[in-house]
Design a protein around this nucleic acid. Sequence first.
DNA 1: TCTGGGGTCCTAGGACCC
DNA 2: TCTGGGGTCCTAGGACCC
Length: 397
Amino acid sequence: MSSRIMHVDLDAFFVEVCRQRRPELREVDLLVVGGRRDSRGVVQSASYGARRFGVRSGMPIARAVRLCPHATFVQGTFAHYREASRKVRQALARHSPTVVMASLDEGYLDFNGTERLHPVSLLPVAEQVRDDIRRETGLDCSIGIGTSRMLAKLASDFAKPRGLCEVREGWEQGFLAGLPLSALPGIGPRAAARLRELGLEEVAQVQQMTEHELTRLIGPPARLLHRRARGIGSASLRPDQPVRSVSRETTLSRDTTEIGELEGLLVRFVGQLASDLRSRGLVARTVVLKLRHGDFRTVTRRRTLTVPTDLDRELLTPLRELLPPAFAEASIRQQGIRLIGVAATGLEHATPLDLFEPESRTRLRALTRAVDVLRDRFGFDAVQPARTLDSRRETRP
DNA sequence: TCTGGGGTCCTAGGACCC
DNA sequence: TCTGGGGTCCTAGGACCC
């Protein structure tokens, strides 16, 4: 029995959500979402008009401005995306009990076991899904159907924009044969370049090789690539995967050589991270500091704690120790800092009660609970450590 | 006017233990 | 006087995805 997965991908999602929220943008044909013209960001999404000028998501804003100078550049609001995404998910959930959102603008539906209901094709279901989403959210989407996650995804890519595409059992190899290797999941720019050097560009070429031949050419990754080229991939959806890490990072509007500025951000990010952990009921065993130098060299420094924690102070202390030496490395290289980030990993479920907890820690926990209550009522910025207040005052003109 | 922010997974080397 | 060796934890970096 073959399995069937549906992949629903919203068309120009970020652009369309911005248009819904800001009517003055509805008639703007050349629209780029991601940041203002002078921002150091990348394009999140471009209208189909702007795409005709070569603007693509992931491209630096500065490059998009050069390619399409007459476009309108806007920032967009994360909460609006999340709200639209939630509505999409609701619409999808009516069509399958197993819906896995892969990101804000795409989701997978599992139709395994519905062969009696839809014996031949899922295309009629896909049409209903598309109509539902259009009616309930005002957004267009493309839909792919296949015998694995990978094939459903590639089918929806093929169908874009506003199309439907079904790759039925037995058609997999023929469908894949027409694609470049770079279309396969896991083949990014680096891998594609390496394969190209070896003369491999098309999926069809890999299909004609034995796994042994491919292994001689590219080594251990051959097994996976060989399988993917034949359309063999995960045929069911695994929902509710536990979170492995949480993080906060930011690229500064200009590189800094002031460690004080970085310390202020560190404190702020740890506050958000710790609050995030507590709201999810998680504790972290390891903290990671990330610095990106002006020349884009990225350095991470991590420390594993003896006791996993969700308390601001316990997460902050090791990060405070890691910062100065990491900062000094950049100074020695005569580089400013472009980005600072923190992450918590090695996540575990918080245990409800520790009878042997030292009293100092119990007090810290009580204080933290009080802060969380205030922040719940008045917003995250209602409570801040003195240090962030100071650094804010200093940066004020 | 170069290059976001949130993630996942993999590799490789060293320490340490049995 | 050499070289074991497997398992696990930790660190650092990097590819990739949306």
